Simulated assay, not measured.
Amino acid sequence: MAHLPVFGTSFFRGPGAAIRTSILGLLVVLAVVTTLAACGVLRVGQNGGQAASGNGSKGLTVALSPASRSVDQGQSATYEVSVSATGSLSGTVSLSTAGLPTGTTAGWSPSSVVLASGGSAKATLTVSTSPTTPAGKSDFTVTATSGAVQSNTAKAQLQVKEVKRTFGVSASLSGALAPGVSLPLDLQISNPERKSIAVTNLAVAIGQVVRTPAAVAAGLPCSAADYSITQYTGAYPLAVQPGPSSLSGLGVAETGWPRITMLDTPLLQDGCKGATLQLTYSGTGQGN
């Protein structure tokens, strides 16, 4: 039979010496294998790669609840944010958002949290919209940061609903138009609602030019092309309380009012004498 190598010197004598030496060699080989297994300091991960042992890694996880909120323009939505430390991380953690729509602001309570190793904390995120925040769905994210450690990116959604209110707009010119003359329009705004309205758009257009019967009989022309309109240039939104109001009553300077100008053209404009301009008005307003 084959003999395993012998380590050391044997002092056995007689016919059984070869067998005893083989057993000794087998025991030595097994001892070497056992030693190699016990000294291993790396472990093999599920993906076949090697990962260092130990639990000194630091990490953060963040989650939001609920994942989606729906509000009207001008209102606020709140989310509960949970932050947890993993590994040996501890200390002050700051929170931030990204991707919120224009016209919104993010507020935190508290503005930061302090975590112990393996601990967790909660904060409230308040997203405040404005009457000018675009209507629709917006996806945004929240992250937590502590020093050089950043958490996962938690996703959330904000749906802003457009809230339109009905109001009336009218105006009249304070004088007669003539070629080269420009007159302002102090728009009158009527709010039939019980709450104030945030007016976010106003526009004036010429609907029709009505000539006098004499101008029509004489075939004298006059049309909207003989006039130009400068639209409202004041600030938005305009907070209009219930009841009647006006641009002047709202404190808007005359320089921001719409204006109607009769153009001075080389064409015959006699048909515009005594003509009546029928103006149309439009606007958009949201409830406050």
Results as ranks from 00 to 15, higher is better:
Leu158Met: 03
Gly285Met: 11
Gly207Met: 01
Lys164Tyr: 12
Ser246Cys: 06
Leu263Pro: 00
Tyr281Met: 08
Pro258Met: 02
Leu187Pro: 02
Leu263Thr: 11
Ser182Ile: 05
Thr261Cys: 01
Gly168Thr: 15
Val216His: 06
Thr212Ile: 02
Ile260Pro: 06
Ala171Met: 05
Leu185Val: 07
Leu250Phe: 02
Cys222Lys: 05
Gly175Ser: 14
Ser248Tyr: 06
Lys273Trp: 00
Pro244Ala: 14
Ala275Lys: 13
Val240Met: 13
Leu202Glu: 05
Tyr232Thr: 13
Ala205Glu: 10
Thr200Phe: 00
Asp186Arg: 11
Ala217Pro: 02
Tyr236Ser: 01
Ala178Tyr: 14
Leu277Ile: 09
Ala203Gly: 15
Ile260Phe: 10
Leu250Asp: 05
Ile189His: 08
Leu267Phe: 09
Ile260Asp: 01
Lys161Asp: 05
Tyr232Asp: 09
Gln208Arg: 15
Ile189Phe: 11
Leu173Gly: 10
Pro192Thr: 11
Ala205His: 10
Leu220Asp: 03
Val163Cys: 01
Met262Phe: 05
Ala154Val: 05
Ala225Cys: 00
Ala275Pro: 00
Pro192His: 14
Gln231Asn: 07
Val209Ala: 09
Ala171Gly: 07
Pro192Gln: 11
Gln157Val: 14
Thr265Ala: 11
Thr276Asn: 10
Thr261His: 06
Asp264Leu: 08
Ala224Lys: 15
Gly219Gln: 03
Gly251His: 08
Phe167Ile: 01
Ala224Pro: 02
Met262Ser: 02
Leu279Lys: 13
Val204Gln: 09
Val160Leu: 04
Leu238Trp: 05
Gly249Cys: 07
Pro184Met: 02
Asp226Ser: 13
Thr276Ile: 12
Cys222Ser: 07
Thr255Trp: 00
Tyr232Cys: 12
Arg259Met: 02
Gly256Gln: 11
Glu254Lys: 15
Ala205Asp: 12
Ala156Cys: 03
Ser182Thr: 15
Val216Trp: 05
Lys164Cys: 00
Leu279Met: 14
Ser246Leu: 04
Ala275Met: 02
